[in-house]
Nucleic acid binder design. Structure first.
Ligand code: NAD
Ligand code: NAD
Lengths: 217, 217
DNA sequence: AATACTTTGTGAATACATTCACAAAGTATA
DNA sequence: TATACTTTGTGAATGTATTCACAAAGTATT
């Protein structure tokens, strides 16, 4: 079981498989790579290769035991234990994240939320009372190692710094900017605007109807 | 100028460069690949290689003319014309997207929003009045070709179908599922939960203090 | 038990992406 | 104008990821 050496692209796909497998639990006991492929839209050969990186454990002629596979993927991704996270910035996006129930399936729980706006501090969303961002200290003692940043771009670096100082070693960042952090801290940035911005590149160009008519004439 | 042949990874980075360049416009007239690198956190060699795919246009010894570079990237990404989009699902996440002013910098404008909840239909967010999702028809006539999906997972496929029927050829999907669409339609899925789920994999394991003490003793 | 069929698993081949090494073309300075 | 310096640009080399071809190991059927 060589946990290192798992390709980054495989690590990116594993949670997608996990998501599909959790939904397939009711369907039956086992699932084949081609059935899984139909759900997630990833080539079955790729799926088998991905699983092979941490040791084959399907049964030939049948497929993969779903429960076993879920356990295995959770272990690889370190999702076999629960994770507490804090949210910083309870604005539009932050509130949506705070209200989302879907993180629990992966073992995540948002344990606290922070903002700097006095109008927001003290309010409660989804049973979490928003605290003053000044109080982001010693999260390690509460066993919190994940921070979610949803503050304006200009404030993100300072917040990242506070989180790291408080003991956070993993950050999910929604701000459209790079965060400078120590090497041991992992940052995953979700940049909604840049994802939207590459959509037109892949879209077909408009057909010029006038031109088509000209060709006909 | 071979617009095809641009690597997918380069297309992914171009909007990131664009974002940084728009912010650098005030700073000066030109920017070097290493200065840009400092902002975006991407190796300068990689940056130059990326730009070289659509023809070198920096000046050696100086760098790249920022305005010219912005124009060029916008053209490649087809962001030189404006794009109208519709949002479907004005819930927590959808409302955040609707309220976000940052898409305008890339030439995007949300022209309409839809929901199926009678309690939401008729409400106005950011000058957009939410319409009944039944009315997603003939968007092509209004020159709308981009749809943003922020409805619950179970409803996403049906909404995708409606959007495609209405003439949409590009979809930004926030639902944690695959969407089956015709080949000509491009889907980019942002799956916040799966991005969060691969964070623990990269985070350092806890140091067991007790064990460390034992070693000392 | 033999045969046909299904599905996993893997080394090798291919495709794709990044990095290297260095030439080319500019600026700045004496 | 020569020399030093800076920065871009690119073919080749290296590294990473995907796909191919096929063996291996199971199930189902006769
Ligand atoms: N909403 C979107 O669709 C969207 C899209 C792309 C990117 N983003 C990015 O996500 C981030 C959040 O966006 P949003 O739309 O929720 O913005 P928002 O303005 O609605 O929310 C930001 C929140 O952060 C709080 N805040 C500001 N400074 C703070 C500080 N120092 N400490 C703690 N809290 C602080 C504000 O009080 C506010 O509640 C931004 O960086 C934005 O660029 C959002
Ligand atoms: N909020 C998050 O942080 C988060 C994180 C990960 C994924 N997501 C995904 O994003 C999507 C939206 O999440 P959300 O938190 O905004 O959910 P939400 O429940 O707050 O909003 C969903 C909205 O869609 C509307 N809707 C339902 N069926 C519809 C239909 N047929 N046509 C039009 N509108 C319809 C609902 O009325 C509601 O307003 C979901 O698929 C969710 O899984 C959200």
């Amino acid at each position: 079981m060589r946990y290192h050496r798992i390709p980054a692209e495989t690590v990116r796909r594993l949670p997608v498989y996990l998501n599909a497998l959790l939904l397939s639990l009711q369907q039956g006991k086992s699932i084949s790579s081609s059935e899984l492929s139909a759900i997630v839209g990833i080539n079955p050969l790729q799926i088998r290769k991905d699983f092979s990186y941490f040791g084959g454990f399907g049964t030939r002629g049948v497929g993969y035991n779903i429960e076993k596979l879920i356990k295995k993927i959770k272990k690889i991704l370190k999702l076999d234990s629960h994770h507490q996270a804090v949210l910083v910035g309870a604005g539009n996006l932050g509130s949506a994240v705070l209200a989302y129930p879907g993180f629990a399936a992966y073992g995540f729980q948002i344990a606290a939320a922070y903002d700097s706006d006095p109008a927001k501090i003290g309010k409660t969303i989804n049973n979490i009372t928003i605290e003053d961002a000044e109080n982001i200290i010693n999260l390690k003692k509460k066993n919190i190692k994940i921070g979610i940043i949803a503050v304006p771009r200009q404030q993100s670096q300072a917040i990242a710094q506070s989180l790291v100082n408080a003991g956070v070693t993993g950050i999910l960042n929604f701000s459209p900017c790079r965060l400078a952090v120590p090497k041991r801290v992992k940052v995953i940035t979700i940049n909604i605007a840049t994802d939207l911005a590459r959509l037109p590149f892949y879209m077909p160009a408009d057909k010029k109807i006038g031109f088509a008519l000209n060709k006909r004439a």
